[in-house]
Simulated scan of single mutants.
Amino acid sequence: MDRFRPSVTVAAVIARAGRYLLVEEETPEGLMLNNPAGHLEQGESPVEAVVREALEETARHFVPEAFLGVYLARFLRPARSEDVTYVRLAFSGSVGEAIAGRALDQGIQRTLWMSEAELAACTDRHRSPLVLQCVRDHAAGRRLPLDAVNAHPSLHQPSVKQA
């Protein structure tokens, strides 16, 4: 029997003047909206990962200020026989202006600022149902301390390769 292996991702929820920073990205399902987000990589903490992903996808430095929570969603893509459960660690924080000349990550078409209402009006374009849920939780005032996510120093040790 195969062991259940969810895919761990991080997401940045960034608000400014009542609007949220989103990315528009190419996916197998077409052009979709998402929070700046991506996969946790081996050897990095969730906070390091969300800072990296936000920079790659928005060309802006992200400063995490709070932990929003842990979110789970299942994604079924019959055309590719994919059945993936995502575990999303969401963080809220702030960004500066876009870094001039810095390219967006592959597949990211643009960044845009949308209100919660604008985002709720186009759920068919969301990469995941977690996009709106994270924004709604942020808008409702959910904030947990960053140290609610503990990353043990062993994460930064070199990996051991077996012969």
Rank of each mutant, 00 (worst) to 15 (best):
P64Q: 07
A49K: 03
V87N: 05
L89E: 01
L112T: 11
T111E: 07
P46T: 05
L119M: 05
Q42T: 10
E44H: 09
A66Q: 04
T58W: 01
Q109C: 11
E56T: 11
G43M: 12
T111K: 00
R102C: 10
H61I: 11
E53D: 05
A117D: 15
S81C: 10
A100L: 12
L68P: 00
M32N: 13
R110V: 07
E65Y: 01
S45E: 09
E97A: 14
A66C: 12
E53A: 08
L76H: 13
R110N: 07
V87W: 00
F62N: 06
V51P: 04
R88Y: 15
T58V: 04
S45P: 07
E56F: 07
G101V: 13
L112S: 05
G43V: 12
A73H: 15
F67C: 05
L55D: 10
A59G: 11
P46E: 00
M32W: 10
A103D: 13
G96Q: 02
R77K: 13
G93Q: 02
L33T: 01
P78D: 13
E53L: 14
I99Y: 00
A90T: 08
P78W: 09
G38N: 04
S92K: 08
Y71R: 09
F67Y: 15
L89C: 07
F91T: 01
A49M: 10
L55F: 09
A98G: 07
T111C: 15
G43W: 14
N34W: 07
E44K: 08
A49S: 15
A59V: 05
V51A: 10
L55R: 14
S115V: 10
